[in-house]
Design a protein around this nucleic acid. Structure first.
Lengths: 190, 190
DNA sequence: CAGCAACGCTAGCGGTGCTAGAATTCCGGT
DNA sequence: ACCGGAATTCTAGCACCGCTAGCGTTGCTG
């Protein structure tokens, strides 16, 4: 009886180890370096074990992405909470968003570029993603005016996402980064 | 003497066939379906022939992307030229940009998501990309105000790019598409 | 017409994600 | 204490990927 409990605990721990290994490997060497063989070696089990936890490699990446959503939401909340005033909050939250994406590129990729088939309509995933979205929404609320807040927030979010992705793919001059962010923030501050 | 000319012409034609096959296959079934084996079969040559034209699969995708830059620039120029007034031009060009990305998702991916190592600093590629960028810049010029035009344009572009990519990865409600575009356009119109 | 150079092909390398089926381990009841 | 059976893990392999070495053929050139 208690043995079964222990085995489930060990199993859960191994699952966490898989996600952690995938995350660490992706952050260190990019997602191309994350292969099922390396992952298996990392957790010191054979390949097929991965498939008793996840449907496939995509599902592992999705699990990493879910962790990322939680972290992003926390980072945004922290930035908003410590802002001097609502006006400054937009700039601070925007900076926090961009910093998150720049410091954890692999994580950001898993969340928004790869792993398209996340269970968005299901539970768990939307929770943390919605948390981050809600932070953005509260931040830009004073500037929304007549606009529908959700629509307004999505547009602001798109601006941030565009800056981040175009920047990292080398389509934007690295120099103008601060200025572009300032332009975006200013456009969504009143 | 003229035989050599003919062979070079045939060779150039084959190269065009490779790019065309890659493009068609990507548009029809996505880039995952574009393998060197299928490409070789499509042009009725063996695999190694591809490597006498391109350094590798990435280079083929880059060639497709270059075609895309030219098309996008043309689409934007056309939209701007036929706009009733400068105010309307922003909306029309934005709509044209989004329409381009939606109607040729694989092409857009090659241009902005995949194929990171395009020769940006070289000739040829920047020409058409810069043409598209210049169209965007001229479109938003009246609204730039004190802002540096290049920075302002890049920020607007990021907004469009963010809308397109978040939309297609399912992170945005498909319903609010028009409204979000309207919000962005309005923010970059004065 | 002979010789040679350029060309395109066959075959194969090391890698990928994933899986069937054998082998092992470990638990529970007698 | 031990043995039968179920659960779990591993070995081995499939089909495919991008890419390349080296052979065979073709076709131009002197």
């Amino acid at each position: 009886m208690s043995t079964q409990v222990r085995r489930e605990r060990e199993r859960a721990e191994r699952e966490r180890a898989i996600v952690a290994a995938a995350r660490d490997l992706a952050l260190a060497e990019g997602w191309d370096a994350v292969t099922t063989r390396r992952l298996a070696a990392e957790i010191e089990y054979s390949q097929p074990v991965l498939y008793s936890h996840f449907r496939g490699k995509d599902a592992i990446m999705a699990a990493v992405a879910v962790e990322g959503f939680a972290e992003l939401a926390t980072a945004l909340a922290s930035a908003r909470a410590s802002a001097a005033d609502p006006r400054q909050a937009v700039a601070d939250v925007a900076a926090a968003y961009v910093a998150f994406a720049e410091q954890r590129p692999a994580l950001y990729d898993a969340m928004f570029t790869l792993a398209v088939d996340l269970p968005f309509a299901s539970q768990g995933v939307p929770t943390d993603l919605a948390r981050g979205f809600a932070e953005l929404a509260e931040t830009v609320r004073p500037a929304a005016g007549d606009n529908d807040l959700e629509t307004f927030t999505e547009t602001f979010w798109s601006g941030l996402h565009g800056l981040v992705t175009l920047m990292r793919s080398g389509r934007l001059r690295r120099a103008g980064h601060e200025q572009r962010l300032a332009v975006l923030v200013r456009r969504f501050s009143h």
